[in-house]
Structures are given as C-alpha cells and as structure tokens.
Write a protein that binds this DNA or RNA. Structure first.
Lengths: 311, 311
DNA sequence: GATCCGCACAACCTCCGGTTGTTCACTAAG
DNA sequence: CTTAGTGAACAACCGGAGGTTGTGCGGATC
C-alpha cells in the first residue's frame, strides 16, 4: 500500500470528484484515476462509485476513510518526530516501566495536546551528550556524570524519591516479613541481572553494598522483566530490588511478594536534567508540571547515594 | 515517505543489521541500504549509526522507531478494514454523535480488543441492502423500511429509547421552563434543517406533527451541528429537538437551554438491525453487551411512532 | 598483516507512475 | 432529438525510482 495513494484517496473523498482532487494535489486527473485504481487493486475492493457528477465512496470506502485519515495523521507525526524545528519533546528515561515513565504519563494526561517522545538511552554519557547537543530535551537521572559535577550548561531538579522494595518468591525466607531492614539483608543473595558496569544503577548499588555490606550479584544478561520475575518466583534463595513505582505486568499464580525495606529505606533519587538554553515550550510545561505535582523527597529515614545531582 | 522504507527501517532496527533485515524481507542488502538511505534523505536525519558489526539506531532513529511501528500497525488495520475475511465489525449509525455512538463506545470500552468500524449511511434502504449483502454487519435504526415490515432475513432488537429535548436560545419564550408538554409546543416553530424527505427522522417527525399538531420546518441544508446551535442561540423564535444522549460540542457563552419534554415524552426508539446469517463473532458480542447493559424502553408516559421495528 | 564481516558505491535494467491525447457515459440545455 | 459540457477511463509514451549483480572500503579479530 502506498501512502501517496492513501493521500489521494482522502483527497478524492474530501473533494467528491477526481478532477478537483487532482487540482488540489497538483497532478492530472489521469494520475488520480491511476492511483485510486491501484489502491483498489491492492485492497481488492472498489472504493468509489463513479457517478456522472464525480465520485462517492462505497461502503468499503467509507469504512476505509477514517483509517486512511488516521494513517496520514500518524505519518505526519512520525515525520515531525525527527523534524528539527518544533518536534515533540524528547525525554530520556532509565527504564520505560519506571517511576519517570509514570511521571511522564501524568504530564501527558495533564497536557494531552503535547507531543512527547520517550526513549531509553541507557548510558549516562550518551544522555548528557544528547542533551548538550539538543538531540534530546531532558533526561530523568539521578546523576549527570559519575564522579564528576554537573556540567555548567545543564540544570537539574529533583523530582521524586522512589523507594526500593524487596521482590521475593513465596519460598523466600523473608517472603512473609512485613518489612525488612537493610542490615537484615546482609546475609541474603540479591540478584540484579543485566546491570552494566559504570551505569547509574551500578553506581547506586555499589554505594549500597559498600555502606550496608549486602551481597548483590549482577551476573547474567537481562532477559527482560518477565524472565526476572519467573526466576525470582521459582528460586527461594534469590531476591531482587524493585522500584515501588515500577509498573510490572504481574504474572498470575507465582506468589511473588513485595517486602518494604526500612531503617533506612533506600530510595532512588530521580531528577530531571535539561539544557539551560533549551527553549522547547513543552520543556517549560514539563518542569512546571513536575514542580506542581512535586512528590516529597529527602524524607527522614531514607537513604540515597551522596552523589545525586543538586536541585 | 514510503511505507516500504518504514517497514525496512523497523526490520533493521529489529535485526540490528542490514544483512539480516534484508534476509528477513527477502531482498538484497543493497536494496535495504538504498531504502534506508532514501528514508534518511526524506527525513533529513541519519537514522542508523553504521558500526562494524551492524547498525544501531541513532537518537533520532530511536525517537522515530515507535512512530514507525505505530504507522505499520495503523496501515495493517486500514487494510484489514476492507478485507473480506475477518474484518472489523461494521456498524451503521444514524448520527455519529447520537445515542447509538454512545452505546458503541460503551461496547468498545467493555471489549477493547474488538475492532470496530462505525459509519453513517443516511438512507434506510442503503443500510438494509448493505446488511443483506453482508457489506455492513449491523445498523442502529428505528425502522427497517418505511411502511413495510422487517424483511424476514433480518432480525432486530430494541436497545434504548432516547428522550427528545427542546433546545432553545436564551431569548426563547420557553427558555426558562422546567419542562414543556407536546401540546404547549403547538404554537412554536421547531426547526430541523437538513432532514431529507423519506428519511427515518422525517417519518418520525411526520408522525409527531400529525398527532400533536406541531409546526416543524425542515427548510435549509444541514450545515452541521455548530451552525445549528449558533442559529438557535441567536434566534428567539426558533427551537429544535435534540436527543438527550447526543454528545454535542457545547459552545461557550451562547446561553443555550435544554428543556425536557413531557406528557408524553417523545422518545426515539433505537433498535439494532442485523442479518440472521451473519456469523461475525463481534456481532454476537455486541448483541450480548446490549442485552446486558439494556436500557429501559417502552416506559409509561413516553411517545414513539407506531411503526418501530419489533424486538 | 591477513582475513572476515558488513555496509556503500557503481552500473545496469525493469517497470511503476507520471504526462498528453482521446474516448466514453451521462446530464442538461436548446 | 440534438448538442454542448462535464468527469472518469483508456492508450501511448517517457523518465526515473528502485530492484539486481558486482565491487570497493573500513573496522575488528586473530
């Protein structure tokens, strides 16, 4: 199926006749006739009844028309998504199912007209470079550059502290605990597969391990959250950390448990990073929205690494 | 922009390299290379970073990818909408903003996976012919054929009686009435533009006029509901009937009033028509849904024409 | 440094999709 | 009934988009 043919179809449906549609599209009537004929051949149905005064859509044509318009709209948005001027706001998140995505969903609900592209860059340096070059507009991170201060042209603001909870299977020793302390976790195996060395999460857990003497295993590639949940559910000796705001597809019948962690409660300090010179209107709206719906952070009794960005 | 190029882009993003994508698409690597190059030229951005081991999407490519996938999904749905076998359920309604559309929205909320195409055929005969030929699957109507009984191969079931209300501007004599009777309307001008002679609505209002001696003017073409609302708002001598379930884009600051009509309350008797031999699974689901969420009809104190379909 | 792998470039060819010119069906006016 | 007008389809032609095969080139691996 050819998008030009679809565009022609919509033009004919709009104009009510081939000739006018041809004029609108700046092509000849014969070309319109050919395009429609080709589309009809592709789809296997007649789309227009040719009348002496023009053309009117058949029932199939009427059913196809809204789909055609939707197709053209989506195509337009797709082009706009990479168009340099006035493209959608591009925001990087650490995890598409994490707390940052939830905040962005809230923002999008509050501003339904705002075009938004969410992507995952994984590496901090790539995100910072992309922000500085204007390729992306903002990033939800806890740190700008590991071990280095925030570059001067970037700004940041803390948005939410996400508590980490312990995810265990039904056979785990702590499965039925109402809550656990970090100290109590010292003897247990914590499994965090797919954590790349040098990544933001790795730095976070390095600090956690150093301070509380936990045992965290980063072995094995990340096969996705489903595989992780399956393994944790079936292995009594394994547990993993899970952000409380993570939206999981919760498998049925696995008996998985989420145990709150306290004394102190480890929280992941999400912050928004952006370039001071970025004038994208939606960026200002996003910052305003985040400030207005601001969740508490730095609450007493919580723990976070020392290197979090200011804001 | 070419859909084949978009499909190729998605295949390369999926495969991680041009060669494998080419194999998946059963074309040569050079063709993939050309398609991607053409797409990049069209969009004006580089979509892949070519690495020694393949290709990985640039940030622009990552932003474009979900749009590309959406585009392909919509294209697939568009094709399916006219595909003879297993196409979406096609339902005809009298008015895209009327009560039937509301029922279909409810059905779609209850069955989000069901593909549904809603269209407006206007003429009863066209709808009946389309149902009998299988071109559409169901129609919300009050009558099958004016003055004739329901054809034997069609079935029908009443689904909802929609009360009609009087819509007036702020200056109308009845604007501040809490309700009016049909008898009280006898002296007032009721304006129903764009009502085609022989249409279902025309038959309805013919009966209403004959029984209660109203004055209904069907003059002028239908310029859409916005124009209708504007005119009614500004003309104290004019009022019109409006279905209580109609979803209007309510203009601000016009002072429009909806006055209930009673003694008796005229209701529009919506019914679902379908072909007895139609085996579309979604049709059965729709009938079940309508039966389960069944609104009251034939309530005492209401009025409807005598020729409504059985069911 | 030799080899492999994967993408880009070049040359070539087919056919898609545009154009112009013409025909055909239907309507409306004389 | 004839005639002019309108709008879509058909025919012939032509340029270029997009496929193929063949080859070049750069980075990674050993």
């Amino acid at each position: 199926m050819d998008l030009e043919a679809v565009r022609t179809f919509a033009a004919v449906a709009e104009a009510g006749q081939f000739q006018k549609a041809a004029a609108d599209l700046s092509i000849t009537q014969q070309a319109v006739s050919k395009r429609i004929a080709a589309l009809e051949r592709d789809l296997g149905v007649r789309l227009f009844d040719r009348t002496p005064r023009g053309a009117e859509p058949t029932i199939d044509g009427r059913a196809f028309l809204p789909h055609a318009r939707e197709l053209l709209r989506v195509a337009e948005r797709a082009v706009a998504s990479v168009h340099a001027g006035r493209r959608p706001l591009r925001v990087d998140v650490i995890n598409l199912r994490g707390a940052a995505s939830g905040l962005l969903r809230g923002f999008h609900r509050a501003h339904p007209g705002t075009e938004l592209d969410v992507l995952t860059l994984l590496e901090i340096e790539a995100a910072v470079t992309a922000i500085r070059s204007g390729t992306i507009d903002a990033s939800f991170r806890a740190v700008a550059m590991p071990g280095r201060p925030l570059p001067e042209d970037l700004a940041s603001v803390r948005v939410v502290d996400e508590p980490l909870q312990l995810l265990t299977g039904p056979g785990h020793a702590l499965a039925d605990a109402r809550s656990v302390t970090l100290a109590e976790l010292a003897g247990h195996r914590i499994w965090m597969p797919g954590m790349l060395p040098g990544s933001e999460w790795a730095a976070y857990y390095d600090d956690l391990v150093a301070e509380f003497g936990l045992t965290i295993e980063a072995t094995g590639p990340n096969f996705g959250s489903e595989a992780l949940l399956d393994t944790v559910a079936d292995t009594p000796a394994l547990a993993t950390f899970m952000g409380a705001h993570t939206r999981l597809v919760w498998p049925a019948g696995h008996g998985l448990r989420l145990v709150p962690v306290a004394d102190p409660a480890p929280v992941y300090p999400h912050a928004l990073l952006w370039h001071r010179d970025n004038l994208h209107p939606a960026l200002a709206a996003l910052r305003t929205h985040l400030a207005a719906t601001g969740a508490v952070h730095d609450a007493p009794g919580t723990w976070r690494p020392r290197w979090v960005v200011p804001g």
